[in-house]
Nucleic acid binder design. Structure first.
Lengths: 182, 182
DNA sequence: ACTAACATGTAATCTGTTACATGATTGA
DNA sequence: TCAATCATGTAACAGATTACATGTTAGT
């Protein structure tokens, strides 16, 4: 997931590590931590894998910066990661939010639509956000006030996302432009 | 976080590992995985730490079950974990949902209220769920349709949770209601 | 002079994932 | 008899956390 995020950011242009962290934290919601011990080893891994290249930039301020640039291999990898999103990545809300943040980087519109369809299918397959032995937890039956808050919040998020997804996919049914569906 | 969840479940009575997994998945939303390689080592850690005890139960079906029971030390640890919730645990939505699922296990009403107040403060401190260089990302300005979906969903969750928290804390001004039935 | 923000890394440790490994019971 | 569900574990590896470690520039 971190690789996807870094690759996605670099697809818009070269960045150095510190800036990558800043942007990632902005895009990941409050409470998200990204320590140096996570970020820099990840960058080194991506470089070893040939997904990014590194160049020195004697930056104007502070210590010299290491500017990371996405390679063609890295871009291909980004597309593959986005295209192949499935399993927990379409089932889990926070994971899917991360995917959504970079989905526009997948060039093929029908592949982007397929990702949204998989997310919609996963949400419709799951009866609700939280279950009790597989049965949806009913808000009305929940006595614990804190679990009520949990249910209430999850339900609001679910309804908003479902409405957005359906609107999005409906709009795609009537393609004003582009080739007819295969 | 996993320790908190296991301890919280066991506070309602002894359970075996398989049942712990089943209940945890119900309480953690879709897409949450909990592999054997995570669960069983965690149980062994808790046992080594004296937080739970283990007893054989030649279960009716399948392999013999290892029933875990919360010790007094374990219960104290659960209370401490819930009482000391702060930092990323009150800033991050999914993390705080996990806390909420077990908050009723904290016996002291004023301590439970303090946790909610810390969450409210954290949410009010953060200008929005997602930011752009510290500035809230405005839905109206967002051109990327997928990031619009992300923003829309996060906003719905945020508003629902804020409304619930404020209602909850307002109601707490009149301490008629004691500890919810465990 | 000091602090905050900029900037990058390593080492020890812990935790999580994935695959492997076993074995009983229940229902189709 | 075959698959699903129940039930528990280990081993190899990957990844994350935390603390340690360094150094510059800009503002107060």
């Amino acid at each position: 997931m971190l690789d996807l995020q870094i690759l996605g950011l670099l697809d818009d242009g070269p960045l150095h590590g510190y800036e990558i962290r800043r942007r990632l934290l902005d895009l990941s919601g409050p409470g998200t931590r990204l320590s140096d011990g996570t970020l820099y080893p990840a960058l080194a891994r991506l470089e070893r894998g040939g997904l990014v290249t590194r160049s020195q930039d004697a930056g104007a301020r502070g210590r010299s910066r290491q500017v990371l640039t996405l390679t063609d291999v890295g871009r291909e990898r980004l597309h593959t990661l986005l295209r192949d999103v499935s399993g927990a990545d379409v089932e889990s809300m926070p994971r899917f939010m991360t995917v959504l943040a970079f989905l526009s980087h997948l060039p093929d519109a029908s592949e982007r639509e397929a990702v949204l369809r998989r997310r919609l299918a996963a949400m419709e397959r799951a009866p609700a956000f939280f279950t009790d032995d597989g049965v949806p937890r009913r808000l009305a039956q929940e006595k614990d006030p804190y679990r009520r808050g949990m249910l209430l919040t999850a339900r609001a998020a679910r309804q908003a996302e479902l409405a957005w997804l359906r609107e999005q996919l409906e709009g795609a049914q009537h393609p004003d432009q582009g080739r007819p569906a295969a």
